[in-house]
Amino acid sequence: MEKNNDKLGQKVLDTIQQKQVKPLPKVWFLGKESFWWGGVTVSILAAFASMAVFVFILFSQDWDIGSELGRGWIPFILRVFPFFWMLMIILLVYLIYISLRHTSSGYKYKTSMIILLSVIIIAGVGIGLHFLGGGQKTEEFAQRHMPVYGAIHQQRMQLWHQPERGFLAGSIVAIEGKHVCILEDLGKNIWHVQLKDVDKPIILHIGMQVKVRGIVGNEQWFFAESIRPFFPKRIMLNR
């Protein structure tokens, strides 16, 4: 047996020498480990941002008039619920799990623990980030740089592009006196908005995005009953 052992050992050494086998460099293993930890880090950061947008979208919907806006609750929810960001979060949690599993110590953690902890941390940080304005910033970035998301966002915005049903939204391009502002709607049409009868007046400025409820009048006049900023106010940061 001892003789066999020596034979095998020598055979292995001969193969190593003949094939000029060398130990892989340390940097290769360090690179591999860093790659997977990098994957964990990037996925976590992206998940924080996605959660912030998810919460931002939920908070910025008009839940008080959802049924009217969407012609029923189900069509409204289907239109405004941030499915895109929910799927992003699920995908990123999966990437966190996969990346962590590939690290040298990742096998020590239970799947349920990795997923549960990820979701708790992502939810906590994501909500915090939303209140710091991160959700809105990320959403605006996604609108500009992700064509697919831009289309989804437009669908949601179209809910407020129904002037004949009393819903109008857009940017203020001019303010005329105390009770009239000029608004460019989502279809690039110009409207004179009469603000005399709004229930809770707000301070307006040029460039501000608003949602107006009211009645359509003649020749691009819109008689507002209520007006609100397009996005709810952030707690910590201003635009």
Partner: peptide, 20 residues
């Protein structure tokens, strides 16, 4: 089993830097 073992030792040798 000996054939596999040879392969195992070659792998151990190439991965020595991966041992922590």
């Amino acid at each position: 089993a000996q054939d596999v073992l040879q392969e195992v030792f070659i792998k151990i040798y190439t991965h020595l830097h991966d041992y922590k």
